[in-house]
Computed example of a mutant assay.
Amino acid sequence: MENVKKVVGVIGGLGPMATVYFLEYVINLTDAKKDQDHIDMVITNHATTYDRTEYIIGKSKNNPVDTLIQDAKKLEASGADFIVIACNTAHYFYNEIQENVNIPIVSILEETVEHIKSKGLNKAGILATHGTISSKIYQNICKEKSLDYEILDEDNQNSLMDIIYNQVKKGKKVDIKEFYNLVNSIKNRDCDCVILGCTELSIIKNDNNLDDEFYIDSLDVLARKTIEKCGKKIRYYVQ
């Protein structure tokens, strides 16, 4: 753990509720007894950023990268020592964003896969948006880290997108039975865990008290890493 006090810059708004959950995770997981024990954060909540998945899969010509770079530069100028992005799919643009700032950006993808490896697990099911899956950004890191993985078949992937975009993002009640059905479809392929590789899925986990051992919440992993990089202690840690 680093002992130097640092400021984290958060690229948020992708979507807005997931950003709120990330901030709650950081606050609730920080071992703090007074206001001054908490982490200093600078946050952008740029909800009007173009949709990442629509651009990646070719449904939109509106590239969100300029906005993401602009926000990263604002965070750097505001005194952030490092940046986190509260969106998995946005990591498709990770290299372009990193090239435009002089402070490090923590990868939610790498931290999540490293966390799984540290638990001694061998195979993960990846639940994520079309953009994340089609770009293979999670799959590539799994290969780099020698972690076996599975992805959903086309029908279940479409069902997951419906849950993410037409239920969670719209603030509607999630069809949890349908969610469990698609989870079971990938769990049955000998997966030790499932990566919640979309921050909207973190909302589902939190709202439904899903098992911490099987459901690997990328937003939770990022929050814990953020606390550590800021030189603070984690209130508790579930192995």
Rank of each mutant, 00 (worst) to 15 (best):
Val168Gln: 12
Ile108Met: 15
Ala72Gln: 08
Val174Glu: 06
His46Ile: 00
Ala80Trp: 08
Glu110Ile: 00
Asp190Lys: 13
Glu24Ser: 12
Asp175Leu: 01
Ile83Ser: 08
Cys142Ala: 10
Cys87Ala: 12
Asn63Trp: 08
Thr112Tyr: 10
Pro16Arg: 09
Gly12His: 02
Ile227Glu: 01
Lys59Arg: 13
Glu2Leu: 07
Cys230Trp: 07
Glu178Ile: 05
Ile11Pro: 05
Thr30Val: 00
Leu219Asn: 13
Tyr237Val: 02
Gly231Arg: 09
Asn28Tyr: 01
Asn166Phe: 14
Ile234Leu: 05
Ser146His: 12
Phe179Val: 13
Gly79Ser: 14
Ile164Arg: 14
Gly231Gln: 08
Val4Thr: 13
Lys173His: 04
Thr53Gly: 06
Val26Pro: 02
Asn188Phe: 03
Thr199His: 05
Ile103Val: 13
Ile195Leu: 14
Gly58Lys: 01
Val238Trp: 02
Ile234Asp: 01
Lys233Ala: 14
Ile39Ala: 03
Ile56Asp: 10
Tyr180Trp: 15
Asn181Trp: 11
Asp153His: 14
Asn206Cys: 08
Glu99Ile: 00
Val65Gly: 06
Leu75Phe: 11
Ile108Cys: 15
Leu152Glu: 14
Ser146Pro: 03
Asn158Glu: 15
Gln98Ser: 14
Asp153Met: 06
Glu24Thr: 06
Ser202Gly: 15
Phe22Pro: 12
Ile151Asn: 11
Ser135Met: 09
Ser202Val: 03
Lys5Phe: 01
Asp153Val: 10
Lys177Phe: 10
Phe82Ile: 11
Ile103Asp: 12
Ser60Met: 04
Val42Lys: 15
Ile43Arg: 05
Glu150Trp: 01
Ile103Ser: 08
Ile116Thr: 10
Tyr236Trp: 11
Asn140Gly: 04
Cys142Ile: 05
Met41Asn: 09
Glu200Ile: 08
Val20Ile: 15
Ile227Asp: 02
Met41Ala: 11
Asn100Val: 03
Thr49Arg: 08
Ile204Lys: 09
